[in-house]
Amino acid sequence: MLRHLFFGKENPDETLTSDDILGKEVIDPEGGFLGVVEKIHIDAKTVDITAFSVDKGFLKKGLLIGKGYVERITPHAVFLRIRPVLNMRGMKVFDYEGRKVGTVKQVVLRGRKNRLKHLVIVSGVLRKERIIPPELIKFVGENIFLNQKKGDVLKQGRGS
């Protein structure tokens, strides 16, 4: 049994411990499983939680998600309010009519936020790299739909 020593009005019954969060599944708003919480990052000065490290699995690069992107923490999972744009890596890119334009090789962000600067896709047998700006993206679901026809996209998409 622990004895509580609280300075302010904090209620010990409403707090979570690191054990409650570590190892929990991280779920995006679409119900996609991103991985499990591996670490909790704390601001050394304010002692506030700043971010969560997400382990995406064996040989996969982890993800650091800021506290602001967390919608809620439940007894079973951590729900995010965003779908990380970094997850677009590996998605297929189709034009407006469903013709395959390429596959996402790299996702370039604006700073460290969940905002897309551009996509680098590889297309064709020669795997030529092209840049797709966010204005060309119509919809992101399981894969990506562009808002133009393939010919127009390949004309606009500069080689990187």
């Binding site: 929990k24 599944e25 779920i27 119900g31 499983f33 439940t74 007894p75 079973h76 999972a77 951590v78 729900f79 189709f94 407006y96 009519e97 469903g98 013709r99 395959k100 739909f145």
Partner: peptide
């Protein structure tokens, strides 16, 4: 939309939901 190369549907066929994970509001599978 339909072209000789591809057909884009206006729906997600519900029959393809088989095998999808079902989770509660709290994230319990």
């Amino acid at each position: 939309r339909m072209t000789p190369e591809s057909v884009v549907l206006s729906i997600e066929p519900s029959v393809l939901l088989r095998g999808k994970k079902v989770i509660t509001h709290e994230g319990q599978a």
